[in-house]
Structures are given as C-alpha cells and as structure tokens.
Amino acid sequence: MSEFEQANLISWARHLARRGKLQDLFDPALQSMDQDQALLCITVAFLHLQRSPVKWPSIKEVVGMLSGDSEPPHLPIEFSPSPPSNLFKYRKKAR
C-alpha cells in the first residue's frame, strides 16, 4: 500500500484540492446530495485547515457562510490548484 493510500482524510482532501478535484470527496451513493452545498461545506472546512489560526473564520462567520447570509468563501490559496499569479509577483518583489 502506498503512502498516499495510507493517508488520512485531511491529507487526501488537501491532495484533491490542490489538483482541483474536490468532487472526488463525494460519496457516489449519495445521489440526492446538493453538490454545490457539499462544496460549500468542504470549502468552509478548508478555512479551518489553514496554517495560521488568525485566518480561521469565527463560528458566527461560518454560520453566515453556510446559511447564505454572507458571501461564500474561496478555497484558501494554500489549497488552491492555481493560486493568483499576482501573489507570486508580490512575493518576488518582496525578496
């Protein structure tokens, strides 16, 4: 068994996020699942996997995102398959 096959759910989800394949987390047996709502829940969960706890949303913010009262979150850059190019330009200038 490969190291990837032995990985935990969070490692597997991170791997899929970086490849742009979050839908692979969905259980095919759940045919009546709202895929947009599932992606929203997964994205909110990723907000709490960021390295810096300062970036984590509060419970109030999470409830707002999930209820539709606030703007849906974007996948954090560290898990995104293609981070914005201007971020890399900024980092190069800062060095």
Rank of each mutant, 00 (worst) to 15 (best):
L22N: 04
L25W: 01
F26M: 11
F26E: 06
F26G: 03
F26P: 00
D27L: 15
D27A: 13
D27G: 09
A29D: 13
A29T: 11
Q31D: 10
Q31A: 11
M33R: 09
D34W: 04
D34T: 01
Q35S: 08
Q35G: 03
Q35K: 09
D36S: 06
Q37D: 08
Q37E: 14
A38I: 01
A38M: 14
L39R: 05
L39E: 05
L40D: 02
L40S: 02
L40A: 06
L40K: 02
C41V: 11
C41I: 06
C41M: 12
I42V: 11
I42P: 03
T43W: 00
V44S: 03
V44H: 02
A45N: 05
A45E: 05
A45H: 00
A45Q: 03
A45T: 03
L47N: 02
L47I: 06
H48S: 11
H48Q: 07
H48N: 07
L49M: 06
L49R: 00
Q50A: 06
R51S: 14
R51D: 10
V54K: 10
V54H: 13
K55D: 15
K55A: 15
W56R: 15
P57T: 10
P57V: 13
P57W: 09
S58E: 11
S58D: 02
I59P: 01
K60P: 01
K60F: 01
E61T: 15
E61A: 15
E61V: 15
V62R: 12
V62M: 15
G64V: 04
G64H: 02
G64P: 03
G64A: 12
M65N: 01
M65G: 00
S67Y: 08
G68F: 04
D69A: 12
D69I: 06
S70T: 08
S70I: 14
P72H: 06
P72L: 01
P73W: 05
P73Y: 09
H74N: 14
H74E: 14
H74I: 12
L75W: 06
L75M: 12
P76N: 08
E78T: 07
E78L: 07
F79W: 04
F79P: 01
S80M: 07
S80D: 11
